[in-house]
Amino acid sequence: MLKPIRLAKKNFLSSLDTSSKEFLHILEIAKSFKNKDLNIELKDKVLGLIFDKSSTRTRVSLQVAMSRLGGYTIDLNPSTSQIGRGEPIKDTARVLSRYCDAIAIRTFDHSDLEEYAKWSTKPVINALTDLEHPCQALADFFDNSRGILKF
């Protein structure tokens, strides 16, 4: 049975954070998920969500994806936590690394995301910055029948 292979890089901040081989592997695994012939458990793993901007698709699809894997998401809303209220990113990142197994961040300045990822010991996912939206582009190359869109 197809098994997810750990990506070489810890983070997914840019569309160039995977090799082309890894990119295709992610889409291949996605195809198995979509066809319901793969069952992967990330039981009790916690994905933290830091969203400085509103989101429908990215937020909900990450939440449902995580729950389908048997894990959880927690909302780290900037208005109710220290993020964006003056605590240095390097402090927040190190603390949340001890609570969460991964973090998805949507923010304005791409360099804030990079700063966070530098200090986080857990994987960081770019859920949109002013510079890139790699989760979107990754999914856009997915094709249900072939795994990848052939152009």
Binding site: F12, I26, I29, A30, K31, T58, S61, R68, P123, L138
Partner: peptide, 15 residues
């Protein structure tokens, strides 16, 4: 597809 692909991405980051 966002959901299926992100489910896969999470698996490959946390596997």
């Amino acid at each position: 597809n966002r959901m299926h692909v992100q489910q896969s991405l999470l698996s490959c980051l946390l596997a």
